[in-house]
Design a protein around this nucleic acid. Sequence first.
DNA 1: GCTAACATACCGTCCAGTTGGTCGGTTTTG
DNA 2: CAAAACCGACCAACTGGACGGTATGTTAGC
Lengths: 179, 179
Amino acid sequence: MSKVDKDSIIRAAEDVVRERGARKLTLDAVAEKCGLSKGGLLHHFRTKQSLLKAMLEAATARESELTAEFVAAGCGAAGGTLYARIESLFTLMEDDESLPRSLIAAVAEDPALLEPIKTREALIRREVCESSSDPELAQLLLYAARGLFLGRVLNVMEPDDPVYERLHARLLELCADID
Amino acid sequence: MSKVDKDSIIRAAEDVVRERGARKLTLDAVAEKCGLSKGGLLHHFRTKQSLLKAMLEAATARESELTAEFVAAGCGAAGGTLYARIESLFTLMEDDESLPRSLIAAVAEDPALLEPIKTREALIRREVCESSSDPELAQLLLYAARGLFLGRVLNVMEPDDPVYERLHARLLELCADID
DNA sequence: GCTAACATACCGTCCAGTTGGTCGGTTTTG
DNA sequence: CAAAACCGACCAACTGGACGGTATGTTAGC
C-alpha cells in the first residue's frame, strides 16, 4: 500500500512539476499522480497555496539537510558554512532544474509564499557572516552562487558550458580564502 | 489620439503587471488598459506568449540602454562594462520590483520565452570577460549582482536593509579592482 | 457512533483564442 | 476617373476547456 501522507503528496506534486512543468501543476494532476481523488487531496491541503507552501518548505528543508551533510563530511573545515551552503546549491541544481524553476515561478507569482522562509534566510545570513573573516564578501559569494543557480535553472546558460564548472571551482577557492 | 502601436501595448501590459501582479496579466486586462478590444489586441500579438516575449525583449533592451548610458557617463572608466552592467541592474531593481518579478515568473513558467535572449546574454558575457583582467571573477561579480537582484525582487531581503547598500558598494569596489 | 480519510459529482469563474464582421483607406482595373 | 476589389486595423460576442474549490456522501477504525 502506497501510504498517502502529506509527504507523499508533496513528492507527487514535485513529480508533476518535473514531468509537466510549473504551468501544469494542477490539483487534478497531483491527485491523479498520488492515486487520490481531488477531494482526498483537498482533505490534506485545503488550498493550492498551502500545497505550494509545503513544497517550498520541503525544498528548503532539503537544502539545509544537504548543507548539514556537507558540513559533517568535513567540507566545512575548508571555509565555514559558506562552503557547504554553496556546495549544496550546486548539488541541487545539478540534480534537478525543473523543480527549482517551478518553485521560483510560484514564488514570483505570489510572494506571500516565502514569508515563512524569510526567517530561515535570516538564519543563513547570520551563519555565513559569523563563520567568515569577511562577512560582506561571504554574502556576495553566496549571492553569486544564487545568481548562477538562477541562470542555470532558467536555462540562460547551457547546462554543459565548461565555464560553469570553472566558476564553481573559483567560487569554492574564494570561499576557502575567507574562512 | 492615443496611438496604439506595439510599444504602447507593451507599456500597457507592464502597467497591468505592476498594478495587479503577474497572475493577473490577462489579455482582457491589457486590452482594457490600452483602450483596445481583445480582438484588436490579438491583432497585434497573435498569442499571449508573443506579447510576453515582446515584454521581455523590451525589458532587456532597456537594461542594455541603461548600461550604455552608464558607460557614456564615464562610469565605465573605473571598471569596464562590468561596472555599468551592475549599476544598471541596481538602478532597475530600485526603480521597480514587480515588473522584473513578473517577468521572472513568466520565464520560469515557460523557459522558451528566453530563447531569443540567450544571444544577448552571450554578448554580455563576452563583453564582461574582455573588459576585465580577471574574467572569471568578473563573471562571478555579475552573478552576485543578479543573485542580489533576485533576492530583492522576490522580497527575500527587506528593501531597506542597510546590508543591501553595503553589498552594493562592495561589489563596485571589487569591480574597480579588476578593471 | 464519531472522526479521519477518503470518493463523486458538480459549480462557477476565468481566460486564451475564434468568428465574423465593420470601416476607412489604398490599389487595381474597366 | 470611378467603381470594384482588397487590406490592415479594429471590435463585439462567443466558445470551450481548464481549474480551484464545494457539497455531499461513504467507509474504516477506534
